[in-house]
Simulated scan of single mutants.
Amino acid sequence: MNGDGTLRTARAIVWARRRAAMASFWRMYRAQRGGMFGLGLLLIITLITLLAPYYTDESELRASNAPGGRMEPPSSEFWFGTDQTGRSILLMVIWGARVSLQVGIVAAVLAVTMGTLIGMSAAHFGGWISWVLMRLTDWFIVLPSLVLAIALVMALGPSRTTIIIAIALTSWAGTARLVRAQTMAIEGRPYLERAKALGAGHWHQMSRHVLPNLMPLVLASATLQVSSAILSEASLSFLGLGDPSRFSWGTILQRAFLSGAISSGAWWYMLPPGLAILLVVLAFTLCGRAMETVLNPRLRGGK
């Protein structure tokens, strides 16, 4: 067999193993009732959010186009009632989900990516590089993340991009610690020692051997990180540091608080965005815990 045929055969074997691994993962994941509930909930929320432009009118979010009266309670026309300008709270929650989910997912991906790169580098290179990276990680761990995020947003100015950067910069350290410990365990395995003996460079070792074995941990960490990022975004927006040009769940809560919804008894203004945050965080947490159980033999009862 020529070289091209051997390469194609090797790739076919690799992809066959990957497909088998994915099928095995999905089979074990389906056995996790909590994970399936969370996944179903996420799919429903995602569809409602992505299809919002096709069944709602975003122009009604402008105060000048508000279709209802001031602080109307839930009714057949406005299922979640209206705010102080007559806008539908249901419409605000649906469109706010687009911002909250976008910020949460992008910030979590950036944080996990930073943590993975720093943790891998610290474990792989060791020496003074590891010392510097771990001291930096310790510094971010001991700092109050919300306070640091507030300082960053106030310094850079409130916007969606700023919030994403602030959340990512304040939440990568925990992932870095986990990845460093797992990388050190992986690099002690025989196949990596053989790769080093055969002359594999740093990039080959990390990209072909270390990172694929880290991916289960990284994916589970990313899923759980989204919940934390959504809560952080809601906290910053509630404090008045969100994007002033767009609705998010935290922004809705902040406007409800400033409009006196609590003192006036307008519970329908506060409850829907709060429940939306709760449901999304619960869904991501259930998915993350299920993935963790599937990928960790000890958690699923393996020896």
Rank of each mutant, 00 (worst) to 15 (best):
V210G: 05
R180T: 01
T183P: 02
A200D: 07
E77D: 13
R30A: 13
V14P: 00
S207W: 11
L133M: 12
W26R: 14
W95P: 01
G240P: 01
G40M: 02
F247W: 15
V106G: 07
T161I: 02
G68V: 04
W131M: 15
V103C: 08
Q32K: 13
S130T: 00
P297M: 09
A229C: 11
V14T: 12
R255Q: 14
D138Q: 11
V179Q: 02
N296Q: 06
A63Q: 04
T56I: 01
A21C: 01
L133H: 04
P74Y: 04
D243K: 12
F25D: 07
S232K: 05
I129W: 14
G157Y: 10
G3M: 04
L192K: 07
G126M: 05
V142W: 06
V294Q: 09
G288V: 01
L91G: 11
L110Q: 09
S145W: 05
Y55V: 05
L90F: 13
L217R: 03
W172F: 14
R208E: 11
R189C: 08
I141A: 12
A21E: 10
K303I: 00
G96K: 03
V14I: 07
L236V: 08
V218F: 06
W172N: 11
G34F: 00
T56R: 06
A234E: 04
A185R: 09
G115E: 00
P158Y: 08
A97K: 02
L143Q: 07
R300Q: 03
W267T: 09
V280S: 14
A107G: 08
D57A: 13
D138F: 12
G68T: 05
A66P: 06
M92Q: 15
M215Y: 07
V106Q: 05
S145E: 06
V103E: 03
W79A: 15
N296M: 04
L211D: 01
M120N: 05
L253G: 11
E233H: 11
A195W: 02
S159T: 13
M134N: 13
A234V: 04
T251A: 14
K303R: 14
N296L: 03
S264M: 11
L7T: 12
F140M: 12
R87S: 06
A107Y: 01
I230C: 14
H204V: 06
W131P: 00
A111G: 10
I186T: 07
S59E: 08
L51T: 15
A31H: 06
